[in-house]
């Protein structure tokens, strides 16, 4: 089986550290196979840079199978690149053509400051999660079996879908307002749809939204870009559910 390889021009954001000013730097790269993942292509580049005695490009990655949400990258104008329903580690180089120029930039948002090169600080997501993305359960040995509580199939499915959010931040990166509504709404909905999550539902939505605003994310204008770019296909329906829950909670909460 013969295989043709690609020669590409990469235009990559290089930034020494959080305080330095960064810039786009061009790197030619050759011999890239279409079977490689995007991150493998980045590995090839870094090997080349190391051999030349240059500083390799810093980028986030961990599982390399689309489940950890660690890989990021804004590739040719889209979060996780041109493919749909994939993370950058799942993006194949066959999505590109020989001779292409590929822009590789960090996810851009005030709430995601650049740490180095393509790595951004996404701990704002963690702080939102700490504000309410949990349920309080008794773990002293008399925990109730979750399966003993009947749950409508539709609700269980929706909660499960929401729970597939991997916290990658592609929604923020794609949104023209750098809004985190899709992420936060998924984290709210995965609990509030289920009986165990209903107990703390009001405080959860109020506190998580408050933290989201504090972090400096923008306001949702329903452009829907997040849903299109989300590697897990998290639905805009979650945002509507969160708006609805938020409204109810802010009207009915105790003084």
């Amino acid at each position: 089986m013969s295989e043709t390889t690609m020669n590409l021009t990469l235009k990559i954001w290089r930034q020494k550290d959080a305080k330095s000013k960064g810039k786009i730097v061009s790197y030619p790269i050759s011999g890239i196979s279409g079977h490689m993942s995007f991150l493998e292509m980045m590995d090839v580049l870094n090997e080349q840079l190391i051999n030349e005695g240059q500083e390799p490009v810093a980028f986030d990655h961990d599982c390399r199978e689309g489940i950890c949400g660690s890989c990021s990258l804004h590739i040719n104008g889209e979060a996780h690149g041109p493919d749909r329903g994939v993370t950058t580690c799942q993006l194949h180089m066959r999505m590109f053509k020989d001779g292409d120029t590929i822009f590789i930039e960090p996810f851009r948002a005030k709430a995601f400051p650049v740490i180095k090169d393509l790595i951004v600080d996404r701990t704002s997501f963690d702080r939102i999660q700490h504000a309410g993305g949990f349920i309080s359960v008794n773990t002293s040995g008399n925990t109730q079996d979750a399966n003993s509580i009947p749950i409508p199939k539709a609700d269980a499915d929706k909660a499960f879908d929401a729970a597939t959010c991997i916290g990658c931040g592609a929604c923020v990166a794609s949104c023209k307002n750098a809004s985190a509504m899709l992420y936060v709404s998924a984290k709210v909905a995965q609990f509030s749809l289920l009986p165990q999550g209903k107990v703390e539902a009001k405080d959860r939505v109020l506190n998580m939204v408050e933290q989201m605003d504090k972090e400096g994310f923008g306001n949702c204008t329903n452009t829907g870009a997040c849903e299109v770019e989300c590697p897990k296909g998290i639905s805009l329906e979650n945002i509507a559910r969160m708006n609805n829950e938020y409204l109810k909670a802010s009207i009915t909460r105790e003084a």
């Binding site: 104008g77 923008g218 870009a225």
Partner: peptide, 24 residues
């Protein structure tokens, strides 16, 4: 406010790939 939420813009951006002109 929304402009402030992304102070550094992308060098290369394809908003048309994921949202309508009207919405933006």
């Amino acid at each position: 406010q929304n402009n402030k939420a992304r102070s550094v813009k992308y060098a290369m951006n394809k908003p048309g790939a994921n949202s309508s002109w009207m919405s933006r």
